[in-house]
């Protein structure tokens, strides 16, 4: 018993030590006489990013919601935007040409599309590194041979791979559209409040980008920049939406299949759980007390 009491005494001592230490940290943080209190919470003056960064706007897509499906035409248009615009600087390294079958391309079209792209290869006679026309099994080639080249060609800012972009950002699909359509002049109010936050030369103001100044110049700058074979509108917003849809597919090609598998699984489980409930009730009926009649 003596021993047990001493365990509790030690525990109280340790508990007080940790609690008082952390409260000491709290008091020191607040400062003598609460002099630092103004720095806490809502009293803090927001910095330029907190004040002007915008969360993505919402755009409607065919694949939204638990029963949404791809709009194959839109994905094909998005592929075209990627191919004609984005691919100049951004790789798409996890997507193979063969995957385009899911966008409704025929084997012949895929072969032709792949062959239009030069992929890294080896010269059969000399063994030297070279490029060869792509095959359906090849992956989308990177525009740069390595990261240093990418850095050198882009003013030290490496264009990220786009394969997973819509999963690598919060609300990724909407983020891509918002970012592509969000280029603008720095608001006068921003410059008034944060004169030192003027966008440096070589960068571009975009409130949807985390630190407001993005190295990428507006990639979609002119209505009709890309001509769509299906005659769909090709204003900047439409092109941005199409490429965002395409990048949603590249990031999660199994999105629709996943949901289509999910419905029967969940419905079956609800049904089976119902049976399990009835069976449990049946088993327990024998011993469950009933309310007195």
């Amino acid at each position: 018993m003596r021993q047990l009491i001493s365990i509790r005494v030690v525990a109280v001592a340790i508990g007080l030590f940790f609690a008082l230490s952390v409260l000491w940290a709290l008091v020191r943080g607040i400062g003598p006489g609460f002099s630092n209190l103004a720095e806490y919470g809502q009293f803090t003056e927001p910095n330029v990013e907190q004040a002007f960064h915008k969360h993505p706007n919402h755009y409607d897509f065919s694949f939204d919601g638990p029963v949404g499906n791809w709009d194959v035409g839109q994905l094909q248009r998005g592929l075209k935007v990627y191919d004609e615009v984005c691919s100049a600087c951004h790789s798409l390294k996890f997507v193979a040409f063969r995957d385009l079958a899911e966008l409704g391309l025929t084997p012949g079209q895929i072969k032709a599309f792949a062959a239009k792209h030069q992929v890294p290869g080896v010269d059969k006679n000399t063994g030297e590194a070279t490029t060869v026309p792509g095959l359906p099994t090849d992956y989308f080639p990177s525009p740069y041979p390595n990261e240093i080249a990418a850095r050198a060609a882009n003013n030290n800012a490496v264009p990220p791979d786009l394969s997973l972009m819509t999963k690598a950002r919060h609300d990724g699909t909407n983020y891509v559209v918002s970012l592509l359509t969000g280029y603008q002049k720095q608001p006068a109010e921003l410059l008034k409040r944060f004169p030192e936050a003027k966008t440096p030369p070589g960068l571009h103001y975009n409130p949807y980008f985390a630190n407001l100044n993005i190295a990428m110049p507006p990639p979609l700058h002119t209505d009709g920049q890309v001509t769509f074979d299906d005659g769909a509108p090709s204003d900047i917003k439409s092109m941005a939406e199409d490429v965002a849809a395409f990048l949603t597919w590249t990031a999660e090609p199994k999105l629709v299949k996943r949901r289509q598998t999910g419905w029967p699984v969940v419905i079956f489980l609800i049904f089976a759980t119902g049976l399990a409930y009835m069976s449990k009730q049946q088993v327990w009926a024998a011993v469950k007390p009933k309310k007195a009649a």
Binding site: F268, A272, L275, A276, M278, S279, Q281, Q282, V283
Partner: peptide, 9 residues
């Protein structure tokens, strides 16, 4: 019986 059905499921 519900228990048979549940075990089958």
């Amino acid at each position: 019986p519900a228990n048979v059905a549940a075990v089958s499921a």
